[in-house]
């Protein structure tokens, strides 16, 4: 979080700088099955974020000693492309931030993937942030869930993620990069929409108990929109093929 002293006005006349209302998502587009070689994949644009997620597996666990003979293991790698940010040229390879995000992402998916069906195996999730504009971990999880379903991996639910932050006295949904840089709080969450259980939760800044409650409500409400876009992306892979013949 950058210093608040030189913070630009992020909220003017009840609207955010990009014209959104406090509880409004940025535009979200998802396309499923975009990569030929992967078992499942998804390309997502969320605001100016551009994210590619792919799933390989279940396959034989490598290295072998990491295999769990009672269930499958999930490996996850989140990475930002060197050209993904406006200001810098990033170095390739995982840094501490990316390693942490990979870990909490993996743990969120361990909650919903039916790991017992493929004992001894490994499921690989790769998330590449091609362009970043705030909220990339949420975007990565939302894309990876679509890739997992498209890979035919059995799951309890199609999970999504979104962030709720705080700017001054306002709670704001789905912060972009600029808002994220100057916000007073940020709280990314991954949620299982079937029961609204929270599978990933990180937070820093300042929330009252009441604000925390409202923030979680906002994330759950946003899930209705996000979930519909995820589902439509998967459905359209098959309905598009069908329409080619059935509409005639």
């Amino acid at each position: 979080m950058a210093s608040k002293a030189n913070r630009p006005d992020l909220v003017v006349d009840g609207k955010r700088l990009d014209g959104r209302a406090m509880d409004e998502l940025r535009q979200l587009k998802i396309e499923a099955n975009v990569l030929k070689n992967a078992d499942g994949s998804a390309y997502l644009e969320w605001g100016r974020n551009k994210v590619l997620a792919a799933v390989y597996g279940p396959t034989e666990t490598q290295p072998k000693h990491m295999a769990d003979q009672t269930k499958a293991i999930i490996k996850c790698r989140y990475q930002m492309a060197p050209f993904s940010s406006l200001e810098d040229h990033g170095r390739t390879g995982p840094n501490r931030r990316a390693i942490e995000i990979s870990k909490v992402t993996k743990e969120a998916f361990e909650n919903v993937v039916m790991l017992n069906e493929f004992p001894g195996s490994m499921i690989n999730i790769f998330i590449e942030i091609l362009q970043s504009d705030g909220g990339t971990r949420a975007a990565g999880i939302t894309a990876a869930a679509v890739a997992l379903a498209g890979a035919g991996i059995h799951m309890k639910d199609l999970i999504y993620a979104v962030s709720v932050g705080k700017i001054g006295e306002h709670l704001v949904l789905d912060l972009n990069m600029k808002e994220d840089n100057y916000s007073d709080s940020d709280m990314p969450m991954a949620i299982s929409p079937r029961n609204n259980n929270i599978l990933l939760l990180q937070m820093d800044g300042e929330y009252t108990g009441e604000e925390l409650h409202r923030a979680m409500e906002m994330a759950i409400e946003a899930g209705k929109t996000i979930g519909k876009i995820q589902r439509d992306a998967l459905r359209s892979v098959y309905t598009n093929v069908a329409e080619k013949y059935e509409s005639v």
Binding site: R194, R235, T239
Partner: peptide, 9 residues
Amino acid sequence: MKEIILPGD
């Protein structure tokens, strides 16, 4: 075509 369902439905 037939109705499509997804994980969690």
